[in-house]
Amino acid sequence: MRRFLSSPSAVVGTTLLVLVLFAALFGPLIAPYDPQEFHPLARLQGPSASYWLGTDQFGRDLLSRILSGAPATIAFGVFSTTIGVVVGSLIGVIAGVSSGWVDSTIMRILDGLLAVPDLLFTLLIVTVLGGGMEHALLAVAVAFTPGMARIARSAVLSVRTRDYVRAAVARGESGLYIVGREVLPNALSPIVVEATIRVSFAIMIGATLGFLGLGAQPPSTEWGLMVSEARQFMFRNPWCVAIPGLSIATAALGFNLFGDALRDALDPRRSH
């Protein structure tokens, strides 16, 4: 752990991540105002002693809205990634372990799905399912699945040719033992690293969907939606678009930096 925190980017990443997760868990509880409460006399204000981050077009406190929107925004990223990672890894592990025609069929289909950009794929699925938070979440999960399957497969393939796996095959171990005890524990770290980094993309895509009106719906305080609602007033008070925008960036940055640091720490070439 001490080695992990020896690089500055790991320290920054961990700090941001803790901050973001804290906001996601306790944000609504510590918000100074009701996020939906109008303050007609204090509309579109910059930061002040009473409104730390300023107010929006209805005079709602931006800090309170950011804090109350944190759970929706972060949970979206975490859950959609988790579903995508679990399903994708399952497919990838099956492809990597089975090899032969099963593998090549799965891979060809994945190649096809991967040729469609993530955001476009998500938009297509959202259109089919209809907008809204749950559907958007599902759409991102589906869009992530082929990429994760590919990473899981290559992780499995790289482990499969290691001598300790060959030793297990030579011993006559069952397929289940080899996959469960020898391959998976060693293939897990690249999957976890990729998943962590992908949470940041999921947060960004989720916010983008909210911005386009295809994700979270009013009166939600999801951050992407906040940017979209405040856009009309952005020239009068840049704070009301900058604050939610930078909050998204902070959350994405936290997961991104943490994932990269995790990769460095887990890379066997860099240990010892």
Binding site: D163, R171, G172
Partner: peptide, 24 residues
Amino acid sequence: IDRAYRRRVQIVFQHPDASLNPRQ
């Protein structure tokens, strides 16, 4: 090749770093 044969014939590889599962 069955498990009985595999028990009777064991193999040791060149690189000890690679032939032992790092997580066991």
